[in-house]
Design a binder for these strands. Structure first.
Lengths: 109, 109
DNA sequence: ATTTATGTTCGCACAATTACGAATAATATT
DNA sequence: AATATTATTCGTAATTGTGCGAACATAAAT
């Protein structure tokens, strides 16, 4: 009866999830994780899409906080944002653990 | 130089993430996790949106595999899909662990 | 056979996303 | 100063997402 209230944690979870909700962005995150140094050109080079589109995907990941960019003229170095990566990791882990269907709560099993 | 190939695992990860990428859908998942039995009406009752919209969000979650619906005329019972929930849990855990910025790989720290 | 209760689907409107090429900005290099 | 390199932003188009009320489908109850 009482309405649901969406918590800031849930908002953040959704924001992270949304940013990860595209195959190309998942691929970018994976690519970044395999590199010590990663410039925009390196990412664009391995993706079959226009640089403008790559830039948009990087913006989405950056705005969600999952990655960060550092200007090293005339290049831009990208990498995973360690702090927020850790936050996301914990939020998702908590969700998957706490919300896990148990014997008590598996109505459809 | 060699192009990135998006793996089926990455596709699935993105599919799960996309489904979780909306606050209302996160709230629905949380709500389901707190209930033994949960019918459409119960969900609609606690959300400030039209039933048509609730139905759409449930469809999105169901198509991604995160939840399942069982018809119990004239009601429909929803719950988290335990098997796929487990799959998602492992895929995200693997990503957050394996792709975690380490000392060796923290270019921006 | 109607009526009632419960959800889904349809049709519409509007916003957001994804993609591209072209134009722009910023900074080294010549 | 002019040029070259690098990446972002602009403008546009096509697709997808979000939301609503109305209409529909289904099955139980009268």
């Amino acid at each position: 009866m009482s309405k649901i209230e969406i918590t800031p944690e849930q908002e953040r979870l959704a924001r992270f999830a949304k940013a990860m909700g595209h195959p190309t962005r998942i691929a970018i995150l994976h690519f970044l994780s395999q590199r010590n140094e990663c410039f925009f050109g390196d990412i664009h080079e391995v993706l079959p899409i226009a640089k403008a589109t790559v830039s948009q995907h990087l913006s989405e990941l950056k705005e969600a906080g999952l990655i960060q960019g550092t200007i090293e003229p005339p290049k831009v170095k990208y990498c995973i944002n360690p702090d927020n990566w850790s936050v996301a990791k914990q939020l998702f882990a908590k969700m998957f653990d706490d919300w896990c269907p148990s014997k008590k709560n598996s109505c459809c099993s």
